[in-house]
Design a protein around this nucleic acid. Structure first.
Lengths: 223, 223, 223, 223
DNA sequence: CATGAATGAGAATTCATTCAT
DNA sequence: TATGAATGAATTCTCATTCAT
């Protein structure tokens, strides 16, 4: 009598897989790769270590999926923003701010995207993820350059720089960064930086779209 | 009558310390912290593991010195560039290009500056190093803002973004990046990005000083 | 449907913990702390080194348990003897003889109670163990002094001296002490010594209760 | 031209040997065997580690000499006391007090006499040392038994018990034992214990020579 | 003779992975 | 399928001992 898998069972299985990924993600976000041992992940999901290996052939592949998953989620959000109806400047700013604000919530997870290769396999995945981010940003840049809104530039490399630029923001405050208002300022300043870089000498043309810094946007407009 | 150490010996000793640091650096540059076990470092210098501990009380302290050393060297070069007589724009560009081109030589070492905290002690050193880089860049930014050459901005965060932006360049090509010409383009594009971000809407004012991308600076000016 | 651990397995697990403690104890008894490396203990139980750490977080804690266990066993026996109905003299003698005879079986284990602090944690446990022994003996001494059977004395220090006195017996014959009859003589002589010291000048009063040496109690009295 | 050793040189050599032994002794007394690494000993004497091996073929042999030396010194003092003109009781008491009071000054050195066999060779030496102590005490015991002052007893084992009994005193206060008055009481109580054990039921005969507890000795004797 | 750098054999501890139940 | 005990290789660090200078 062959066992047929009940729908309930199937769901639980799919469930477990997802729960493992999320547990690993939570641990990485909280304490970095170092804290995310198989034993810790298993404990977090409420399974045994052995059970993890029923769903993932190795720790590396689990981590690859954690990255892939997290990135897919981000990419979806960013893509939606970037596909929006606003000007390229507005969309770029919104995308950077959106990503950066989430990144600040889990700095250790952010590390994961740029961290030291714990494992070659994981490293390969990470590079791909970064490229995906780059591609999304490249879209806005291209559309902005095409429309003349942005300065002419190597959109591919600019995209990479944008990823790198706000990456920095994630890494700096390893200590839980005090105030919410500080975070907002930080995010805004990063977005400003990226937008300025995208605009180039078109900034003047465009006019008051870009505040030169956090507090004087109005004054900058009157010129 | 105390025995005096021969000059040859003295040299070898001082040498050894440096050789250990360099060997560790080489290993980190080639394969990351992961590959730089004490045993590997010892083998690389041609010493026993025990000998390493004559020069460094712990692995952490060795790694701290590797970072400190590497950073000190970079900082010296960057500081010289930044203290130069050129315009802020030129100095910023030169600094970014200088740093980025060296970083491309040892991508894994670059990782070390942003890596996942392997060890709290090493991590502390890393954060300090990043701040030092930031401070150097902040200098040019401040001088440029003060002279009116750069747009008004949060120089601290812009400096961090610059560090982050070219950090990206170091991380991307983990695979040995094909052609030298590619590297040059990459470096130039990064510098362009950073300079644009610094200039902001002053770009137009300043005039054709900034090429919007690698080859078409003229066209970008006509607008 | 969670798997239930078979009773056999459960038993083996509980067993293992105990077996590790006993293996460590055996090794210490045979060759001292020196011979009881984690590797040796693991080999003795037939486990891997890693397995030991499933049961004990560190070598120190294992050793503490070895001591604690051994002492708890002794204390239980001694307490029973000392709580008995006999005269203080008889109970003291019985307690010393009981302890000493067991101690002679594992001289190296006895070392463990007085050994050089190998590890602060273990050392702390050892001091507590010695105090516990002392307290047990102090009970008989106090009861004997109170009843007038023993001479007035510092019961605390006398108790310590008793522990020390037969400690000596454990240490002397590191070489496998020849004959059983010798051991018996040794134990008896130690007990005599302790009892004499407890009695003090009450000895005469009490009468022939105490043999002055092993075999000639009658003759010793007539003098 | 053969080198002739100058008298000065000879002295320095003999000196060094002694200085090494004393340095080792100091270190052991201060922090136990654990703190007395060859490197530490060398630093203490102001020699190189290699130099130690010119005087002692191994660490074990150095430690053996440390023990032997220390014991020889003690034995000399004790022998003098025991060869004195007083009663056996007085001589025994004096010997115990003399030894114990010195032992309290360097508890860690005292450990060394009873410590866990760090090394079989050292262990062998330690056993011999203990026996030597025993022999000295046996002398008084024998003389006291012969004169009828002490109870008939196995002098060999009583001697061992005495060594063991005050050994305990050395081990108890690993923490620097506060007050001098406490120390005095401790030493006296130990001596009392040993003397009582030696006297046995002769105590009454002899009369008020033995104070049953700490404070009434002098007044009780002269009567 | 003196030096002290170098050796290298352990020792404790960690953790991804396997496998009997 | 699930469990988690067991494995064992790898890693950091220590220290007695040696030997070129």
């Amino acid at each position: 009598m062959a066992y047929r898998r009940s729908p309930l069972m199937q769901e639980r299985l799919a469930d477990n897989r997802q729960r493992i990924v999320l547990a690993a993600r939570r641990l990485i976000a909280a304490g970095g790769f170092r804290e995310a041992s198989i034993a810790a992940v298993a404990a977090e999901v409420g399974l045994s270590t052995g059970a993890i290996y029923r769903y993932f052939p190795s720790k590396a592949e689990l981590f690859v999926e954690v990255l892939t998953n997290a990135v897919a989620h981000e990419i979806a959000i960013l893509s939606a923003i970037i596909a929006g109806p606003d000007t390229a400047t507005q969309r770029l700013r919104a995308a950077v701010e959106s990503f950066a604000s989430r990144a600040l919530e889990g700095p250790h997870l952010a590390y994961a995207f740029i961290a030291e290769p714990i494992d070659p396999e994981v490293d390969a995945a990470r590079i791909i993820c970064r490229q995906q981010f780059g591609e999304v940003f490249e879209k806005v840049l291209k559309s902005g350059v095409k429309s003349g809104e942005f300065a002419s530039q190597s959109t591919e490399i600019s995209a990479a720089c944008i990823v790198g630029a706000f990456t920095e923001a994630l890494i700096r405050p390893v200590a839980p960064t005090a105030k919410t208002s500080d975070k907002k300022k930080l995010i805004k300043a990063i977005a400003d930086f990226c937008v300025r870089a995208a605009l180039g000498d078109n900034a003047a043309k465009i006019g008051p779209g870009l505040p030169a810094n956090n507090s004087k946007r109005v004054s900058s407009r009157k010129a």
